[in-house]
Amino acid sequence: MDALMVKDFTKSYGKHVGVDGISFNVKHGEIFGLIGPNGAGKTTTLRVLSTLLSVTSGEMYVYGKSVVDEPNEVRRIISYLPEDAGAYKHLTGRQYLDFISTFFASGEERKRMVSRGMEITGLGDRINSKVDTYSKGMMRRLLIARAIMTRPKFAILDEVTSGLDVVNATEIRQIIKDLSSEGVTILLSSHNMFEVEYLCDRVALIDKGKIVAEGAPGELKRKYQAENLEEVFTKVVRG
């Protein structure tokens, strides 16, 4: 069974079509990247998959569960990290992880979950500081820890390293690689083609709501005789 099956998915906002009949599959344990410019439909696709927005038409299944008909079941499987997400500023990092853990586990298991989250953040003693004192990098680490400490089957990460410095971005990419090696399926979106090329097993290039190319980064580079995905994207979009 595919981890994710998207078939003829369309999302409209009135007359504006945000995503126009896209189809793609993600295999279990794979890191799959959705790449494209601003407004291409990446975030909309991720939000619909996360059960935040409704489907205009088409089908979406996460590990066989319908996003349209079984949103509560889907929410048990996924973990979604929005772009530029924040945490409750009056809480400390530890309190925030503790709050999230209450929705996934209880007793000793919950304690282990929070410990794992604290370890992933790498924040040391700062985990006990109020979230509003965190830098952008610290906040992103906390949120990634929040998203993956629950050991989700399917992680959805939107622009995961956006706005981070090189050191923080590199560390976070490593965390994602480690997560994948543990068998978690990951769907991510990014503007950063180099990051996608480094992380993803397969990618879909999306432009103006349509998938214009799909495959492993190496395959796509060979097919379009390009040095990198950025070049692939430019060639595909410009014809």
Binding site: T51, A87, I100, F103
Partner: peptide, 14 residues
Amino acid sequence: ENKTLETLLTLPVN
């Protein structure tokens, strides 16, 4: 604004 609502709405709670 902080997108904490998005996180909340994707948690396994109705």
